[in-house]
């Protein structure tokens, strides 16, 4: 409880918060909808104002939430898409009924998707996130897609099908059931088709990774043999690459871990530090560098906030006895 229960006039604080928001937006800092802490890192004066008192932070968060909501107005541009109202709670039962999950990763595939049916494609809508960004969008059919860091997709819906292309990054899909209107995802060499389910897709190099938490997903790869296909069930992770298709039954826990980024966390299990660093570096400007191979091979486990590299580095120092050398946007981890 505050010492003084009489509130200060909220007007001046709200005005200051609005001015900060407009100023940050003018400098393009709000485009990827970063968290407030990240904004603080990018603008010292803002950080000073923000931490001065809780009321400042609150006022900013309130306007920032409205600002993010107003982004949904972009749907007016085409009438095709409505961005996700974060205020909407999806009914739990419905979430259960449609829940299924796929994570797909593709890397290094350069060519664009070409519409194969000869029909005039609708003008696709493009969405992207910058490094560290995350964005949730509700599509016109009620499906919800969540874009992870550095992700770029286009969405093109027709009466016959729902089509999404993933150019880079990772997406979690919660697809509304519409059996007469298949939902197709093109991600480099991987093609995914579902009728109504949820899944996440990541495109990294020449590999598309699909992790299914519930439901059924059809995964096709256009590989050297001309293509192969597989049906993925809950708990399975599929990898499509130019060499072919690999499917493993990893279990639901593994799939859940794989998709923990949606909650802003990363989970590792006996994961070499080199891969841990790579994963953190996907989300942060501040990069973790592993000094040598021995250090890179140290295996770690645990769950970490994906945007707090500093906390992880401190943990590596205290818990693993490593040395963390900090310079600018780099943290070098080395064995002692």
């Amino acid at each position: 409880m505050s010492a003084d229960p009489r509130p200060k006039s909220s007007d001046a604080i709200e005005q200051a918060a609005a001015d900060w928001l407009a100023s940050l937006d003018r400098n393009g800092l709000l485009d990827s909808e970063p968290g407030v802490d990240e904004l603080c890192e990018r603008n010292d004066a803002f950080a000073v104002w923000l931490i001065e008192k809780t009321a400042n932070r609150i006022a900013f968060l309130r306007l920032y939430a409205v600002w993010q909501r107003s982004g949904r107005l972009a749907a007016l541009r085409s009438g095709q898409l409505i961005e996700h109202p974060s205020l909407v709670r999806r009914p739990f039962v419905q979430a259960l009924a449609t829940a299924a999950c796929v994570a797909v990763a593709v890397l290094g595939f350069g060519s664009l998707w070409v519409f194969g049916d000869g029909a005039e494609p609708p003008a696709p809508l493009r969405y992207h996130t910058d490094r560290g960004g995350m964005q949730t969008i509700t599509l016109e059919d009620g499906s919800v897609v969540t874009l992870n860091t550095e992700t770029s997709i286009t969405v093109a819906f027709t009466a016959e099908e729902r089509r999404v292309e993933l150019f880079s990054g990772e997406v979690f899909f919660d697809v509304a059931s519409a059996p007469e209107r298949p939902f197709r995802i093109e991600a480099g060499d991987g093609k995914i088709e579902v009728l109504g389910t949820s899944f996440g897709v990541e495109r990294r190099a020449s590999i598309v990774e699909v992790a299914v938490s519930e439901g059924t997903v059809w995964l096709n790869s256009s590989d050297v043999t001309g293509g192969s296909a597989s049906v993925l069930k809950a708990g399975m992770i599929g990898y499509a690459s130019p060499e072919g298709l690999i499917v493993e039954s990893s279990g639901l826990d593994a799939v859940d871990s794989r998709l923990l980024w949606r909650e802003g966390r990363l989970r590792f299990e006996e994961t070499p530090l080199r891969e841990v660093a790579k994963e953190f570096n996907r989300y942060n400007t501040k990069q973790l560098i592993i000094s040598d191979e021995v250090t890179g091979n140290i295996e770690i486990g645990g769950t970490f906030p994906l945007d707090n590299v500093d906390a992880f580095a401190r943990l590596a120092e205290n818990g693993l006895g490593l040395e963390a050398r900090r310079s600018g946007d780099r943290i070098m981890l080395a064995g002692n």
Partner: peptide, 28 residues
């Protein structure tokens, strides 16, 4: 962007920024 908006309307960037500030408050 704010800069593009300013150019399209033929007004200064600080003017656009001021309207953005006012706009988000009024929207809220």
């Amino acid at each position: 962007s704010q800069r593009e908006t300013a150019r399209a309307l033929g007004v200064s960037e600080p003017t656009v920024e001021r309207h953005v500030s006012q706009g988000v408050r009024l929207l809220a």
